[in-house]
């Protein structure tokens, strides 16, 4: 089966600035993938390239095996997209938004959409612009899900929501994932919660892919090593060092992969996802080797 999303050397340039550069990744079907990175890392650009809103300046992007721009007619009904800030027609009522969805989508499941709106207690006759942020997000999600998409792309879906609305939104998404064969890609600059919600992770920073893979593998392949400073160089030879810090006699290394033979003077710690992500983001901004002088 073709991957849900596949890019090769994908790049998008605005003027002379690359918003996304040399991005190669593969997101398997059925996964829930987090696209992580600071603001301006290229997350939105990647998603917009995937739905065909933007055109690549370099490389290729294939979604469900199709090319977003060239095969738009075939692809668009099969993907759901919720843009940042959840834009909708502000002057429409919720009922009119549903009608809009039914008019614009050949695969529209009106019954499911109405059921969701009723379950969420959203007033059908209220104007979209007078809804709360969380309600608007839920309407946008309902519209995307009623297309019965194979792939759901969410751009910073919870960034603007309060904690309760955030939880409810993620709950809604995961509920649908557990119902069937839905692939979800969601971008976020907040790392908390992602470990629970997602099973795959893509780290973007300064327009480039820093890391992509399943969260389980990522957690298993990264370790924090603490040991004597004079042996740091030996460890660095057999491990990919992402971050190191030194004090007078001790060195702390954040490493990826490598052999398991450690000197007994080195202690090995497992890392949380957040620490690993931060290590990569620090690397992206050019602080690959930070040395703390004592």
């Amino acid at each position: 089966m073709t991957p849900a999303l596949e890019t090769h050397g994908l790049g998008r340039r605005y003027g002379s600035k690359w918003a996304l550069r040399d991005c190669t990744l593969e997101i398997p079907r059925g996964s829930v993938t987090a696209l992580v990175g600071p603001n301006g890392a290229g997350k939105t650009t990647l998603l917009r390239l995937a739905v065909g809103l933007a055109r690549p300046s370099a490389g290729t992007v294939r979604v469900l095996g199709l090319e977003p721009r060239a095969d738009a007619a075939e692809l668009l009904p099969r993907i759901g997209f919720v843009a940042q800030e959840h834009p909708l027609f502000g002057s429409f009522t919720v009922a009119e938004m549903l009608r809009t969805g039914s008019k614009l989508n050949p695969t529209w499941d009106d019954e499911a959409a109405r059921r969701r709106i009723a379950e969420l207690d959203l007033p059908l006759d209220q104007k979209v612009k007078s809804l709360s942020g969380g309600q608007r997000a839920q309407v946008a999600l309902t519209l995307a899900l009623a297309k019965r998409p194979e792939l759901l792309l969410l751009d910073e879906p919870v960034a603007s929501l309060d904690p309760l609305a955030r939880l409810e939104f993620l709950q809604s998404v995961l509920e649908v994932v557990s119902d069937g064969e839905l692939t979800v890609v969601l971008s976020s600059h907040i790392v908390a919660d992602l470990e629970r919600v997602c099973d795959h992770l893509v780290i973007l920073s300064v327009g480039r892919t820093q890391l992509a893979g399943s969260i389980e593998e990522i957690l298993a392949s990264h370790r924090l090593l603490t040991g004597p400073r004079d042996e740091a160089a030996d460890v660095a030879r057999t491990h990919e060092v992402l971050r190191e810090s030194h004090v007078e006699r001790q060195t702390t290394l954040l490493v990826r992969g490598g052999a398991h033979v450690y000197d007994s003077r080195w202690t090995v710690h497992e890392l949380g996802l957040e620490e690993i992500v931060l290590a990569y983001l620090g690397q992206g901004s050019g602080r690959r080797r930070e040395t703390v002088a004592s």
Binding site: V32, L167, L170, Q171, D193, R196, V197
Partner: peptide
Amino acid sequence: KEVVTALTINPN
């Protein structure tokens, strides 16, 4: 589905 909804965790 019950677990997913109760805990907001990935179905996988």
